[in-house]
Design a binder for these strands. Structure first.
Lengths: 231, 231
DNA sequence: TGCCTTGTTTGCGCCAGCGCAAAGACAAGG
DNA sequence: CCTTGTCTTTGCGCTGGCGCAAACAAGGCA
């Protein structure tokens, strides 16, 4: 495998290019533009005309949305191998969210025209894309249901579990969430406030369900969290 | 135009079949099964394997979602010319929501195989479908943002406005929402309770912003509602 | 090493919104 | 016209969660 591909292993895992052979895959990568964004920088802004879609290759992006008063919500995190903004690009509209990096992050970008050509040439991409978008609808609808029907601490539990599943790695005492997560971040992701998150996590730490530090969370008793979330 | 099509005018408006000629359109309709469901009946249940997708031809469907505790949320209303469950069928998964009728409702149903054949034969359908799904993601994300950041009465205002836009008709004193909407329905759609909705609507009625009766709402001052929602 | 910035904790007071309960209003059907 | 069931209103009390304020902790950088 040529050197310029060797560091793109993450792409192999990507659902977008599932079902393509080595040759096709190589072509697809060649048509994209690699880009590295520094920490805490914005890849695209909510409301900007959508020109490119992005596949994360290393680290992750945070998708946020603002309302008129400037209050922020975290829609989701996009990790290695995941795609974002495909939707907006295809439909030729505006980005509905803002994408920003937490740590230095590597992405591959394709513009609308290239994306369309690729989908035309490899129909599998279009079908995979549809599946990805549908999964994302399910996810948002699920969280909409939660925020409408459940109380704050249940939602915090579910949020931690969701983040654990998508970005967790086994560590010493449990499963570490590999995203720098402040209390404010968790609040924005759950639909509550920094204070309530802090109080809740403190309580759970006393119970031995989690261990937490500055922007760092280890789930030590996932089972207890699940039981609590569904209780 | 043959008689069996004359009563399917609603389909003409449908975004799904935009860009097709008369011949193609006729073929598509012929391949679907017309069905009429009585009032207050369920077309499909959340969790059932998805076999068919449906286009509403007359009246409307209500899409709801339940959590583990049995609490209900209204995800959206599907009116004449709108499609639902296309997603689930394509992906061959489970229905993520329950679809039920309020009044007697006419739909056209296609099963997965037919849908796939049609999409293969008329690529425009697939593209239109993508657009529809993307619009729906935007909608859910927008409402997720609202329910996370705004207070109850603002959300009720936005809900009324949304329903007014999608199912409003000019009437004597303002714009009538043509869906039988109980206070409980509005609560389920907004993420609050029947009591709070009742109190809020009473207050707005005194201000002259709306007129309401049993399961019936007329928006008399949309502008005031918009200002309030964004205030 | 010590300063400075950014994140975390916790006490405290407060209020938006919940939810019971009970009464009133409306529609349908005998 | 009355009955029955469903929907709506409103008083009342309560509490989950918000948010200020202030102290504390942890890195980062000079």
């Amino acid at each position: 495998m040529p050197r310029h591909l060797s560091s793109l292993n993450a792409l192999q895992k990507s659902d977008v290019f599932k079902g393509m052979n080595e040759q096709q895959y190589e072509d697809v990568i060649r048509r994209g533009h690699r880009k590295t964004v520094g920490k805490d920088s914005v890849l695209f802004h909510q409301g900007d005309p959508a020109t490119h879609c992005y596949l994360v290759n290393r680290n992750r992006l945070k998708l946020t949305k603002l309302n008129e008063q400037g209050k922020e919500v975290i829609i989701r995190y996009i990790g290695a191998g995941e795609l974002t903004a495909a939707a907006a690009v295809i439909k030729d509209g505006l980005y509905p969210v803002t994408a920003s990096s937490i740590d230095e992050t590597e992405v591959v970008a394709w513009d609308k025209i290239t994306m369309m050509e690729m989908m035309h040439h490899f129909p599998a991409i279009a079908i995979n894309l549809l599946g990805i978008i549908l999964a994302r609808i399910d996810d948002v609808q699920q969280r909409y249901l939660e925020v409408c029907t459940e109380q704050v601490d249940q939602r915090i539990a579910r949020s931690l579990l969701r983040l654990m599943r998508s970005a967790g790695s086994k560590s010493q005492n449990g499963i570490l969430i590999e995203i720098p997560l402040s209390r404010q971040n968790i609040a924005d992701y759950t639909g509550t406030t920094l204070y309530t998150v802090s109080r809740t996590l403190s309580a759970w730490e006393k119970k031995g369900w989690i261990q937490s530090g500055r922007e760092r969370i280890v789930v030590t008793d996932p089972h207890a969290l699940v039981a609590f979330a569904e209780g």
